[in-house]
Design a protein around this nucleic acid. Structure first.
Lengths: 236, 236
DNA sequence: GTTCCGTTTTGCGCTATCGCAAACACCGGG
DNA sequence: CCCGGTGTTTGCGATAGCGCAAAACGGAAC
């Protein structure tokens, strides 16, 4: 079994308040895994046999309706956990996880969770906090979908992605993994067509530069302004 | 201090796995409070000084945008907790809680949480599960807002309310607290006008019976059918 | 270099839903 | 019993964004 170096993960919020030897003990129960770009990590509805910590790469969590429509629940960045189904009392994964880039993860068997959570209260507390944070994000998203127009929602979504997984460039910020118009549409509750039109518009104003599964925010500040513009503020 | 009878709360999922004497100890830290109909329990943005367990009545949690628009985050039914801001790492309440009916709650000081959570792992685990369940619900709501038309969303919302807080009648189910068209609009991301039109339509088909802040589902089964109808299935 | 496939762009008509405005109904209070 | 106020109904444009379709584009594989 590939032993994991604790130094790689000590500083993650997940392990805040966990002592080094305790961390050692926690990591001993994990194995690591690699998933190539575009491979599935787990499928919605499958038995939740494991939970994961992303070390490297990017993972998309998406939920599918009975009729086949999809939404992107979130993108997972390195250092974040995913697939916590059982910690929150689910026997099956509520979404599908796909590596959008070559990714490396730590994998714990679901069965290990109750023991770990009881033995290391900080771990439980930290997990509660991250789940709580995700709940807040979801509420924010619901608020946006209820009150904002598509253009504002797309602006917010891109700004969040840039914050979470942006690579600073000489001028602007590039979203550091492949993401299509369709993906953005599924994050904001619209269609890829509308997203394409919006991005084309922004591109012609020099706000962004984008291409095939690639987006660079050239003028983040002006996009912030756009994001905050209320529905009726006209364009003069 | 009004002592709370443990028998009232032992069976709540929140306290699953907590021994009677432990429960006693937990309750010792709580006080009880009463909130008359339409009174505020806490305001969005205020210091999160307490967290709550609803014993009786109904509470609405709503989130407000900077521009004053509101959405209803959820309705709290008896037996559920709310105002868990600090458990999930927030210093301020992310939403406003209002009693929609005369309500009775247990109130713990925020400061008690870390101790309780560490001392009673089941309490922490149960809380994680309920927060996780709310996260799932939020994702479901996002999915609905992204993929369904307003009528379907309203149908789903009413069915959920009926399930959570419905009073069975001889024929049909009544939602057991005052709820306006506006409230439903804020749960489904639409306007009170559209909700009113939809309910009027349903009423003329005998699906519901409704009035001022009052809704009775007369034909829940047919509403389920409506809720599941995909966008394009015509009315023939 | 050429082919093939997934992604992106763009045009155009359509419609579900909003937004505004006005009239109503119901309930509690005096 | 009447009054005032909140909640509800309904009509009528206006429109943001969808849905369909087709074409252009870009990359990767061979």
């Amino acid at each position: 079994m590939a032993r994991v170096d604790t130094s790689l993960v000590t500083h993650l919020p997940l392990f805040a308040g966990v002592k080094p030897d305790e961390l050692e003990e926690i990591l001993r129960e994990a194995r690591s895994g690699r998933y190539p770009k575009n491979s599935a990590i787990f499928e919605q509805g499958a038995d939740a046999q494991s939970f994961f910590l992303l070390l490297h790469g990017h993972v998309r969590a998406a939920k599918t309706t009975p009729t086949g429509e999809q939404i992107v629940v979130r993108y997972v960045a390195p250092g974040e956990t995913f697939g916590l189904a059982m910690a929150i009392g689910l026997a099956h994964y509520p979404a599908t996880a796909t590596a959008v880039d070559d990714s490396v993860v730590l994998i714990w068997p679901t069965a290990a969770w109750p023991r770990l959570a009881e033995r290391f209260p900080s771990l439980a507390a930290n997990t509660l906090q991250t789940v709580g944070a995700r709940l807040q994000e979801s509420h924010t998203r619901i608020l946006e979908m209820s009150t904002q127009q598509v253009e504002q929602r797309v602006a917010h979504a891109l700004l969040r992605l840039a914050k979470q997984s942006g690579k600073k460039l000489d001028q602007g910020i590039e979203i550091d993994f492949p993401i299509s118009r369709q993906d953005i549409a599924q994050m904001t509750g619209t269609t890829l067509h509308t997203v394409s039109r919006i991005l084309s518009g922004w591109e012609s104003q020099g706000l962004v530069e984008s291409g095939r599964q690639r987006i660079i925010l050239r003028e983040p500040h002006r996009i912030v302004v756009l994001a905050e513009r209320s529905a009726d503020s006209g364009a003069a």
